[in-house]
Design a protein around this nucleic acid. Structure first.
Length: 784
RNA sequence: GCCUGGGUGGCGGAAUAGGUAGACGCAAGGGACUUAAAAUCCCUCGGUCAUUAUGGCUGUGCGAGUUCAAUUCUCGCCCCAGGCACCA
């Protein structure tokens, strides 16, 4: 659907649009020097891929994991299609931002709710995932423990089932609210004097769009149906209302209203003058209904609740639930917010759903041998995104796979784009496998993904769907694991300040003339307003074209800046000057190497004992080993490339700090060896970050083989061990002095040296020393 | 309202296991080189009070606490970002 919308906007065919994009993306990624294994490249819009998606759909259909039902679904008028709940953000379409309305349609669904509990339980086992994403998923699944209770309807052999998380307040339920769409609403009001009122209300509410229904200040209103139900615990007669705040899609679509203990119910009761009964009171005070201004939702002591009076309300939840179960009035249940995944899209550009509608046989799956059902590509798109498929006779008209009737029709809805992305990583393991969905051995070898990377915007879209799909594959015996991604890193977005011109609105950075004191618009010379730093977006024009950047600085500087500016999970604030700084660093490395390369060409990278080296070069040698240790750790374990880069910067600064470097290298072959070791290590450490640069540097140092074939540098712990240690002295926790001391000096000697220090003495000022804390090889704290 | 993060110089950010706060870079200021400019190299750079010193005081959103020692741990509060939200 995203590709199709873009293709329509650009007056081209989605296929052409998609393949063009893949081509330019591949080019850009290669140009930036990404080391992807291009032999495994797949395109999910090709029949070789979606054939297996359709195959999987058939398997899911067989097992009842995929089904069709008529339901109220999210419909986007602008995109002309249904959206899954996950694809509606604040009641707007995730793709085009237009409002979404509810529409009743027959649709295909995946039974993701069957795995709700499992998806939730495993959230806590995803140790390598950011907490933020876990929290969002848990929230989305929305498990709540409660009780399901039947409220008998007066003078009728029927009851209203409700779901509540607060069974302790049942005695305080004084009225009932049904969702306007609830089937009982019509049933109770039909033929009564309330019918017209109710019908008008339902009609009015259904016309209101969801976004206004979700507003904070949206007024709670309802209409009496004329019927009463009986509170099964208190025996009280409760009027049955239909109310706009009751949601058909949550729980049972009916709310047992307890105005004393639920704010929403409280407001409703006040408005319609309904009874309020307090059944839980705070431990240290009494509640008076007439003076209450809001509901009491806290924990407390039970009152007005028959045998349960005096108990703690939290305990009463359990006791009342048990009582209800014993009397067969209801039972404990678990309710989830998560609903089944609607995957039908009334759009053209997607994998066809391999199903046939036959007048005789009903819904019939396409035979496995007849897969793939190929999406015809020689079609013209219709205005406004409406799918041409249902009007393509040669596609839509089909023989029934079961009875052979020639009048059957193909399912012309296509699958949600997120179905494609829910299993591509398995396909990567054996991209050319043609007789099966994937090669089992290859999947066993590679999967699950050790480290997955993606944006947070997929926290509950792609990442939840993929976790679900993995469970489906697992249930079908196709894979042995349940979780697709062991570790997850959600990278930040690239952000930049916006520029607004009073005349031209948002303008591109290259349209800003910043030569004067005040930046002005190139086109009209008006002063420019510099807006806040926001995610780069075409609409706000705060973008940098990567190609321009590659032209000016090349791939390495671009990579270096991106990795240096912030740790990867954080948003990156784009800075032209920062890029310039990265460029400067590379030139600095190149220059020092260029100056010294002839002097060290014949030297062997030093690898001997530290006692052979002297002075600054010993220091440099140690620093190199230390840097290797830090960089290795930063890159491998922490993914903190920014600190890895800064460590190499420090190392390079250390070289620059040596006076008369050339002379010292000329005079002493050991010094030259140290220098060579340092430069080679620097090249190797920089190679993942600036691969092209590192390769050049490597060659200039006399290597004929690619740097990629050289092993990662290793450090020796014994080189790091220094005999002379800098010891910091604190008096009462404040830094007062420091001195060098031999590594293994005994505590007594350290104490003596510290106490005899002139500056330390000054701050002790003759006061008695209470305590001396010595942290080995680090500091001394003297408490006076 | 609820759930997650997060508040450190002019700015991006360091401080990995409670132990020298501000690494590294950007910007700024000063100097060297140059006829000049660019490029490059060197120095300064949290605040404040001092200018004999390896200086004093203060400082990681605010307020308390634990500790010899807190950016780091605990409690309360404020602010920012993201997510969820008539969810019964």
């Amino acid at each position: 659907m995203p590709a199709e919308n873009a293709a329509i906007a650009n007056k081209t065919h989605p296929a052409a649009w998609t393949y063009d994009n893949i081509d330019s993306m591949r080019r850009e990624l290669k140009r930036l020097g990404f080391s992807y294994d291009w032999d495994r490249e797949i395109a999910t819009c090709k029949p070789e891929y979606y054939k297996w998606e359709q195959w999987l759909f058939l398997k899911m259909y067989e097992k009842g994991m995929a089904y069709r039902k008529e339901a109220l679904v999210n419909w986007c008028d602008s995109c002309q299609t249904v959206l899954a709940n996950e694809q509606v953000e604040a009641d707007l379409c995730w793709r085009c931002g237009e409002p979404v309305r509810q529409k009743k349609l027959w649709q295909w669904f995946f039974r993701i709710t069957d795995f709700a509990e499992d998806l939730l339980v495993y959230c806590d086992k995803l140790a390598g995932w950011p907490e933020k994403v876990i929290a969002m998923q848990k929230n989305w699944i929305g498990k709540s423990l409660g009780t399901f209770i039947k409220f008998p309807i007066e003078n009728m052999d029927e009851h209203i089932p409700v779901f509540t998380t607060r069974p302790d307040t049942v005695f305080g339920a004084t009225f009932m609210c049904l969702a306007p769409e609830h089937p009982l609403v019509k049933k109770l009001s039909t033929g009564t004097s309330h019918e017209e009122n109710i019908d008008n209300f339902i009609e009015r509410i259904s016309r209101q769009d969801r976004s206004s229904r979700a507003l904070d200040n949206y007024e709670k209103e309802g209409v009496f149906t004329g019927a009463f139900c009986i509170n099964p615990l208190s025996g009280k007669k409760m009027p049955v209302y239909t109310a706009n705040f009751a949601l058909m899609e949550y729980g049972t679509g009916a709310v047992m209203s307890v105005p004393a203990h639920d704010q929403r119910d409280f407001e409703f009761a006040k408005k319609y003058d309904l009874d309020i009964i307090v059944v839980v009171k705070p431990p240290d005070e009494d509640l008076d209904v007439s003076s209450m201004t809001e509901a009491f939702t806290g924990e407390g002591v039970m009152v007005n609740s028959g045998d349960f009076d005096g108990a703690n309300s939290k305990k009463a939840i359990d006791d009342i639930s048990s009582f209800i179960e014993e009397k067969d009035l209801g039972k404990r249940t678990v309710n989830f917010r998560l609903r089944d995944w609607g995957i039908s899209r009334q759009r053209y550009w997607g994998a066809p759903i391999p199903m046939v509608h036959c007048n005789e046989c009903g819904i019939v799956p396409v035979k496995e041998n007849d897969l793939p059902v190929i999406l015809p590509e020689d079609v013209d798109l219709l205005e406004g995104g409406k799918s041409p498929l249902s009007e393509l006779d040669y596609y839509a008209r089909v023989k029934c796979p079961k009875c052979g009737s020639p009048d059957a029709r193909r399912e012309t809805d296509t699958m949600d784009t997120f179905v494609e992305s829910s299993w591509y990583f398995e396909r990567y393991c054996s991209p050319d496998c043609s007789d099966r969905i994937f090669d089992k051995d290859a999947v066993d070898y590679w999967m699950p993904v050790d480290q997955y990377i993606g944006g947070v915007e997929h926290a509950i879209l792609h990442l939840l769907y993929s976790r679900y799909y993995t469970r489906v594959l697992n249930a079908l015996g196709l894979v042995q694991y349940r979780e697709p991604f062991t570790r997850l890193l959600t990278q930040g977005m690239v952000c930049k300040e916006t520029f607004t011109c009073p005349e031209h609105g948002f303008i591109f950075p290259e349209e800003v003339n910043d030569k004067g004191a005040q930046p002005v618009c190139e086109k009209c010379d008006n002063n420019i307003i510099v807006g806040r730093v926001e995610k780069m977006s075409k609409s706000k024009k705060n973008v940098i074209d990567p190609n321009t950047l590659l032209e000016i600085y090349g791939a390495d500087t671009t990579r270096l800046f991106c990795l240096f500016a912030a740790p990867p999970e954080r948003d990156l604030e784009w800075s032209e000057q920062g890029v310039e700084g990265g460029y400067r660093f590379l030139k600095r490395v190149w220059r020092i190497s260029f100056i010294t390369v002839d002097l060290i060409m014949d030297a062997v990278p030093f690898n001997g004992g530290v006692d052979e080296i002297e002075g600054e070069f010993l220091d440099l040698y140690r620093k190199t080993h230390y840097t290797i240790k830090k960089v290795t750790n930063d890159i491998q374990d922490r993914f903190h490339f920014n600190t890895a880069i800064s460590a190499v910067m420090e190392l390079v600064n250390r070289i620059y700090a040596i006076d008369n470097l050339s002379d010292k290298l000329k005079k002493n072959i050991i010094n030259a060896g140290v220098m060579k070791f340092t430069l080679e290590s620097a090249a190797l450490m920089l190679s993942p970050i600036v691969p092209h640069f590192a390769e050049e540097l490597w060659e200039s140092l006399g290597h004929e083989e690619s740097i990629l074939l050289s092993p990662w540098p290793s450090y020796r712990e014994e080189v790091l061990v220094q005999d002379d240690i800098l010891l910091v002295v604190q008096v009462n926790g404040k830094l007062r002095s420091r001195f060098n001391i031999s590594r293994n000096t005994g505590e007594a000697a350290i104490k003596e040296t510290a106490l005899s220090d002139e500056r330390v003495q000054k701050f002790i000022g003759g006061k008695p020393v209470k305590k001396v804390i010595i942290v080995k090889n680090k500091l001394v704290n003297i408490v006076v």
